[in-house]
Design a binder for these strands. Structure first.
Lengths: 218, 218
DNA sequence: CAATATTTTTAGGCTTGTCTAAAAATAAAT
DNA sequence: ATTTATTTTTAGACAAGCCTAAAAATATTG
């Protein structure tokens, strides 16, 4: 078993690897973990000795296969708990992160297996992020950012890129929810802002918004 | 907020105070915490500085009012999670302790409030132990050990004194469950063993068993 | 009540995970 | 290509929580 801190580092490396597939830098990791570069170096050494990451001095880190498995398992637990909090306990989707950060470290195979069943094997968390299955496989849907679509195109809103309370509350306020059909009526070439159709209602959104909404193109 | 270790010490002191109301000894606490007396002394000093316990050297510890509140809150969380595990996730009553030991330390007022509501404000955990309310009040029922009753007396089984898997599985095997009416048909004066009536069926139980079952006398 | 046994505390050390400050390596820029 | 800037690592320190061994206080017992 791994410590809370080790699990958090593995999770952070997993997330950063998407942006830095060649290797995650010490500074990027320090930033993500809200800690200092020297602390990161210490921990990376430990993870490297445990064969959870591949590491060469000054070269950044990558997850090893066992490291990736551990990270994905933590992410699976995080997202299942988020579903629980929203679906069963009535939390809003911008309130779940902090609590799920704690719950994701509870150690019990049976707990997560039964929770998954209790929630009816959800495929996505409340933010639309995919929940890996017990073997660590993610569903891969052909999602794109709304900002990448053009006038006349459309798709189902399936996720958010950023989960800050501010952004999620903006979406709530404007009645933008996951599962909704979005049709692009106009796209302003100057600032990339869009006029979209949402359930019959029209809404003007900026490029900042459209760059943080994932759309499933059918 | 308090550390995991601090919460566990407070909880242990709370439980031991029932047996040692004059003050919990360092050794008793070391035993309960599976640690060494010197470690206990260290922690007691820290808790004492934080005004969570009253402590005088060589005199044992007692919880202060804030210490008791914290301990009771941890116990409340532990027992609510046990109800969740059994009622919602289908755990057996002898499987819940270890997981609840972890879950009890999750920090979120809202989480526990909503969990309580989700579980429909349960008054007892799966072992029959009372769940304190959000203000820290325990329901007090006039419970006695089955062993203290005599021939002809009867009552409802409401709890167990010991929660070891062996004992709980013995109860399951013999169909003894909480909420059940127990009538004492015979009591052997030599070894205190009893012949009881359980839902129409007769069962012979030893004094070891009857000394670990709580009965509510009506 | 003095001697012995037990309990509790102190002293010093270890590990985990963090920090600051300084040194070393790499990258950028003139 | 040599200087300058940035990134990364090392060195040494610290707090939390635990340990062992020894000292001090309290209890027990003849």
């Amino acid at each position: 078993m791994f410590s809370l801190s080790e699990e958090n580092y593995l999770k952070a490396i997993f997330h950063l690897e998407r942006a830095f597939p060649a290797g995650v830098s010490t500074n990027a990791l320090a930033d993500e973990m809200n800690t200092k570069a020297s602390s990161v170096t210490d921990m990376i050494k430990k993870l490297s000795e445990k064969k959870l990451v591949d590491y060469k001095k000054y070269q950044g880190v990558k997850l090893s296969e066992p490291g990736r498995e551990t990270a994905v398992n933590v992410i699976r637990k995080h997202r299942l708990w988020e579903v629980f909090l929203v679906e069963k306990l009535g939390f809003a989707w911008d309130e779940v992160h902090e609590v799920a950060e704690q719950l994701e470290h509870i150690k019990s195979e049976k707990l997560i297996k039964e929770l998954d069943r209790f929630l009816d094997f959800p495929k996505r968390d409340p933010h639309g992020d995919p929940i890996p299955d017990s073997k660590g496989n993610f569903i891969n849907s052909n999602k794109v950012l709304l900002a990448e679509l053009n006038k006349g195109e459309s798709g189902i809103c399936i996720g958010v890129k950023v989960s800050s309370p501010e952004f999620l509350q903006y979406l709530d306020k404007n009645k933008i929810a996951l599962g909704q059909l979005i049709v692009i009526l106009e796209k302003e070439s100057f600032d990339q802002s869009m006029l979209i159709n949402l359930n019959g209602k029209e809404l003007k959104i900026s490029n900042v918004i459209s760059s943080n909404l994932y759309i499933k193109i059918s």
